[in-house]
């Protein structure tokens, strides 16, 4: 079975049209925005929508907490696990 991290990487590539990037190019713990993968604010919204749809979880777009959850693939995976546990 695919790991949650791999699934998130696939969603990132598909939802953000990263046609030249493969799963192996995305480090689980590197920052998604700014210096790391180089995503921007529109990507953040698009990715948020894709994650909400795929995992049926709630996101608060304005909170500082959400920023922490979206720091890397690793932090997103922990957040999704935690939300799944809560449901």
């Amino acid at each position: 079975m695919k790991s949650l991290e791999t699934e998130i990487k696939e969603i990132i590539i598909d939802s953000l049209d990263l046609e030249d990037i493969s799963i192996d190019d995305i480090e689980t713990d590197e920052p998604l925005f700014g210096d790391g993968l180089g995503l921007d604010s529109i990507d953040a919204l698009e990715l948020g929508l894709a994650i909400k749809k795929q995992f049926n979880i709630k996101l608060d777009s304005d909170s500082e907490e959400s920023k922490k959850h979206f720091y890397s693939v690793g932090t997103l995976a922990s957040f999704i696990e935690q939300q799944r546990g809560a449901n």
């Binding site: 529109i42 919204l45 698009e46 929508l49 909400k52």
Partner: peptide, 9 residues
């Protein structure tokens, strides 16, 4: 459905 932020922008 929710509107894609990229499409909207």
């Amino acid at each position: 459905h929710e509107v894609s932020p990229k499409d909207f922008s």
